[in-house]
Amino acid sequence: MSRSYATEPARHESPAQRPPAPPRRRLRPLSVLTLTPLLRYAIARHSVPPGTDRRSGCDSCGTPISLDHPWPALGPAARCGNCRARIGAPPATVELVTAAAIAMLLLAGPPVGELVAMAWWLAFAVPLIFVDLAVHRLPDRLTLPAAAGTWLLLGLTALAGAGPAPWLRATAAGLGLAGFFAATTLLLGARGFGIGDAKLALSAGALLGWYGWATPVLGLLLAVTLSGLVALGLLVTRRARWSSHLPFGPYLVLGTIGALLM
């Protein structure tokens, strides 16, 4: 005796009936913001004049700043927990810049190896922006690890399948851009770029050179244009003089980001 079985039609869920995506996946990029106390610590430690010991506590009351107890001094409020004096970068600025850096990485959408190299560079570039703006210096403890790490990570990306050509070009571009900055220092003295700018150019040039010979030129042009426009605005508003020395590190970082996005 045979039996017949009626087959039920397949059920298809409409987009409205599907469960929403887990919030963890949507918030995963924002989890990087939990690293901002480390960035604020680097900024507070190195925002001191040349030849001065790195900052270890509040300038007003001497309360130590430490990653063991980051709040509130290394949080968005940037205030000493004892005397409420400001420590390091202005409130919420590091968090906003870090969020913008995350957005840049998401917009660029590079392969994993290049993404890791960009993230490493930005982890040092963000503190360097604030340190240079505060005390007009780019410390070796930030510029040299940025250069070494970026170069090595791009090398690993080359070994993973990208091939030696982009890595060799990145190496040459980093050395060439750094040499250009150093030459202006030797030839023009204080009117040229600083040695700290040359050391930052090692990593910026390598990152840009990975994508072609024209990209470092574009990054440099963007940086010089941005710095020129800001300098002109400061002169017009009489907030600077022709003899004033303006930090170039922030514009080199912005020019690099702009060229990568283009």
Rank of each mutant, 00 (worst) to 15 (best):
G205M: 08
V135H: 11
A123M: 12
D132Y: 07
A183N: 00
T171L: 14
R169S: 06
W167R: 13
R191K: 15
G155F: 00
G155K: 08
G149E: 01
L133D: 10
G179I: 01
T143S: 15
L207N: 03
A165H: 13
A160R: 14
M118T: 03
L152Y: 06
L175Q: 05
L186Y: 07
A160V: 00
W121C: 10
G155H: 05
P164M: 01
L138A: 14
P164K: 03
T150M: 03
A201H: 09
G161H: 08
V135N: 04
L208P: 09
E114V: 13
L187V: 14
A165M: 14
P145G: 00
L115M: 12
L207A: 07
G192S: 00
A134H: 13
A170E: 07
S203H: 10
A178C: 15
V112G: 00
A146D: 05
G174I: 05
L207H: 01
L152M: 11
G196Q: 08
H136V: 14
W121P: 02
L154Q: 10
L200Y: 04
A198D: 02
W167M: 10
P139K: 06
F180E: 00
L154C: 05
A162Y: 01
W151N: 10
A190V: 08
R169V: 01
L152T: 15
A160H: 05
A201L: 09
P164A: 07
A190C: 02
L138S: 12
R141L: 10
G149F: 02
A148S: 14
A117Q: 08
D140T: 07
A204R: 05
T171D: 05
L159M: 13
L186Q: 11
A182F: 14
V135D: 06
L122G: 04
G179W: 00
P145V: 00
K199H: 11
A158H: 04
L208H: 08
R169N: 08
I195R: 13
T184K: 10
A190E: 15
L153F: 02
L142I: 03
T185Q: 15
L188W: 14
A182M: 15
F193M: 15
L175E: 07
G174T: 09
D132W: 02
A158Y: 00
F130M: 12
V116R: 09
R141P: 03
F130D: 05
L122D: 04
A190M: 05
G194C: 09
V116S: 11
A123D: 01
T150G: 14
H136T: 12
A148N: 03
I129T: 10
A134K: 14
W120C: 03
A183Y: 01
G196I: 06
G163N: 09
W151E: 06
G194D: 07
G155D: 06
V126W: 02
W120N: 04
F180L: 15
L202S: 05
A119K: 12
A165K: 12
A172K: 10
A172H: 09
L152P: 13
F193I: 06
A117I: 12
E114A: 08
G155P: 12
G196W: 04
L186K: 12
K199S: 06
L168D: 05
L177D: 02
